[in-house]
Design a protein around this nucleic acid. Structure first.
Length: 442
RNA sequence: CGGGGUGUAGCUCAGCCUGGUAGAGCGCUAGCUUUGGGAGCUAGAAGCCGGAGGUUCGAAUCCUCUCGCCCCGACCA
């Protein structure tokens, strides 16, 4: 049996004190909980605990993308400047783009986004309307040379992002694709334990109403947001037929007022009418969906043959989720003074097993038995088998925020009970070993 | 990119003003005692004081330049 889920083996460098470099709570907790270490400004190493969370977020995002009919691909991190010259963005993008020259003096860049590359893939391989619609996505690292990276992984220069690109024959199709992603986002964020609110966003020169930012409310949010309080009560349907008409569902979620401060107009009738129901808060943008029509397909000649044999420039949209940012965002939304409180869906382990008296034959035997039983049942468990004081183990376990703590102490074992603590509620109860195991799904 | 701050042990920081060759707490190692919410005692290991120049008999300390990091603002998943 693999043993690395023993605390004595697992690489988990927790910190008792707050590193000076970290200002906001998620950044502090990620450093203290041994999830990440900074490599350079806005660039991070992910340690085992952090990587486990990142992978879980990624998996949920992937499952929901697949469910919505998108297909996963993987594009390069380093791109040729050629395509960007074609779209006109090589000059426009500015210093945020990390530009590289290879040994042959060719202009390359580390991709800040992938519209050009995906459009190139599309135009080379899809020639007929019969192959539409298509949604292609990837989960990959991007780099934007932000002037001022901050807030840990919430605003890094290198970040993991899910980016999806839709291709449709006409606007009606593009709207269907947009709606699919809209709903997929609602479901994704709900599964991550987040209350995400779609807010109308600036559609830029394209105009129209097909641009939404998905925002979670948090005191440390970067932007001010305003929304009807009814949005906070809305629930996400558990079953969605992506082949059906999603417009009603999208309408339901967009009928109530919600806007970031750049789009918010306090004097508008729309706002004054609902003054009593208006919530003003801070928010973190965790996703953005965007219809941009033929901006790239036109510039790059992404054309298919239509039903009547005519050439049709395809309609596109792009849909991003900040996967690494979400890890920080989830912590911002779910923590207390003692540390992180993971939603079970993304927790690095489900259970933290604490042996309160290492070296005591009975607690050792009981703890080992619980560890093995849980492992065999497929329950993710981190077993604190270190010879540390009880207080240190409790504090550490609270810090890393596993949903359940299973506490094995000599007094309890003598009476045939163990203690089960819920990290979120703080509630703890003494129950029999069998009851504890069944509660934990073993 | 403008403004501000800060780099001294793994972490948090003192020392700098008033130059004399490096300290504390936590962490780490060993031993003893402890053992249900980050223990106590003893003994240790650990720092080219961010880097480069300069002033000086002598620089962590003064001067110049440089690099990193953090914060506020303008920009963004």
């Amino acid at each position: 049996m693999r043993n690395f889920m023993r605390r004595s083996v697992f690489f988990l460098p927790t910190l008792k004190e707050n590193p000076a470099e970290a200002q906001i709570v998620s950044h502090r907790l990620m450093l203290r909980a041994g999830m990440i270490r900074q490599h350079a400004a806005g660039i991070y190493n992910w340690l085992p605990l952090g990587l486990r969370v990142l992978r879980k977020v990624e998996r949920i995002v992937r499952e929901e993308q697949d469910a919505a009919g998108a297909q996963e691909i993987l594009m390069p991190t380093v791109q040729s400047a050629e395509l960007w010259r074609e779209s006109g963005r090589y000059e426009d993008y500015g210093k945020e783009m990390l530009r590289i020259t290879d040994r042959h003096e060719r202009d390359m860049l580390y991709g800040p986004t992938h519209e050009e590359v995906v459009t190139d893939i599309f135009r080379q391989n899809i020639k007929t309307y019969r192959d539409l619609p298509k949604m292609l996505y990837q989960i990959h690292w991007k780099f934007r040379d932000e002037v001022r990276p901050r807030f840990g992984v919430m605003r890094g220069r290198e970040f993991l992002m899910k980016d999806n690109y839709s291709f449709d024959l006409d606007f009606a199709g593009a709207r269907r694709s947009y709606n699919r992603m809209f709903v997929a986002y609602l479901r994704t964020f709900a599964r991550l334990g987040l209350k995400a609110i779609p807010m109308r966003a600036d559609a830029g020169p394209i105009g129209g109403d097909l641009s939404h930012e998905f925002i979670i409310l948090a005191e440390t949010g970067e932007s001010g947001v305003f929304c009807h309080k009814g949005l906070l009560e809305m629930t996400v349907p558990s079953n969605v037929d992506y082949e059906g008409d999603l417009q009603l569902l999208v309408d339901e979620w967009t009928s109530l007022y919600a806007a970031t401060d750049e789009k918010h107009d306090p004097g508008s009738a729309e706002v004054t009418e609902i003054a009593d129901e208006l919530v003003s808060a801070r928010g973190i943008e965790i996703g953005h969906i965007f219809y941009f029509g033929t901006k790239y397909s036109k510039a790059m000649n992404a054309v298919v043959t239509g039903p009547g044999g005519e050439p049709v420039t395809v309609e596109m949209g792009s849909y991003g989720i900040g996967v690494s940012r979400l890890v920080g965002g989830i912590i911002e939304a779910s923590h207390d003074d003692a540390g992180i409180i993971w939603p079970e869906s993304v927790a690095p382990f489900k259970v933290g097993l604490i042996n309160l008296k290492v070296g005591d034959a009975t607690t050792d035997r009981m703890s080992e038995a619980l560890y093995i039983t849980l492992r065999k049942a497929g329950v993710e468990v981190l077993y604190d088998d270190r010879d540390e004081r009880a207080g240190a183990k409790f504090a550490d376990m609270d810090l890393i925020g596993l949903p359940w703590q299973l506490i094995v102490g000599p007094k309890g074992v003598a009476r045939g009970v163990v203690e089960l603590k819920n990290r979120a509620t703080g509630q703890r109860e003494e129950i029999s070993v069998d009851a504890a195991l069944s509660r934990l799904g073993a």
